[in-house]
Amino acid sequence: METNGIELQSSRNGLSIPVINGVYLHSMYNPQKEAQAFAEKHEATLKKKNKIIILGLGFGYHVEEVAKELNKQGEYKILVIEPNADLVKLFQATRPFLDSNIEVMSFNEAKDYYLNEDFTNFLRQKPGIIKLDTSFNINRSFFKEFLTFKANSNLGEYQSAMSPAAKALTGERTGSLFDITREIKSQRVVVDKNDYLLLALTEIANNSKEVSQ
């Protein structure tokens, strides 16, 4: 069966294996055994962290094995990053995860993840990160960008991502927040009440830097 360039084949033990551009995302012999080996390989990470990001959905077998391991230790959460939306759709239609502790996130571009509140909240909890090699290799440039992402600090680039309250604060200003507040401080007189609020905002970050120093 083929859907949008993704072919679904059956493994020797009857499980569905997606094939993308001739690459099998899981073992055609025993994907579950392969998935168990995947979880064992990352045992040290799974013992230290109960929050995990998995790069590459594949068809979920490795994710379920990781979940089994984490479940032995108590509460856990897994976030799967998969840029191929068609694969995600196919997966959800075929064998969606029953475990509510597993969430799949799918955006085309790396920057969209770092704009997503759920993702950034999850990232702030310092999760472990592991990758499914087959998925990673197919989407190498995406995952490379994802892992080395540095945000564009220009507020002007993110107007569409700004909440109404944030827009009211920043107005039409462009540049990074620190650049904007530097400019405000260089003015002789502060004229806009919102300028004080922006200064307060950067002061919060400065205070945090001082505390950590």
Binding site: Y114, M162, T170, L201
Partner: peptide, 15 residues
Amino acid sequence: LNGEIYPDVLACNVF
């Protein structure tokens, strides 16, 4: 605001 991976817009939204 202190992390390079996060755009400043996120802090503006929260604030």
